[in-house]
Amino acid sequence: MKYVIKILSLLIAITAFWIALLEASVIPRSYTWLLPVYFVVLLGCYGLLMVGIGLMRFSTCPQEARLLQQDILEAKRGRRGQ
């Protein structure tokens, strides 16, 4: 199944659940109306959190650049030796 269909069906399922809630009025309607807003905010928070965690764990490695420079020097010397 195409991924876009999976995502769309998930969205439709959530919408259906929301409409059912709205119709059944188990919780006050004014709350139910706000749920999609919460959903979007939650999604945004998830994104921010993941980007934040990713950024924190994304290491910079200046020592690798140094090692590479050493390797380059070594390679240049090695080639002259041949």
């Binding site: 764990r57 910079t60 690798e64 650049a65």
Partner: peptide, 12 residues
Amino acid sequence: TRYVQGGGVHGW
């Protein structure tokens, strides 16, 4: 992968 422990980038 650049995104796990032991991986990373330089110059960004």
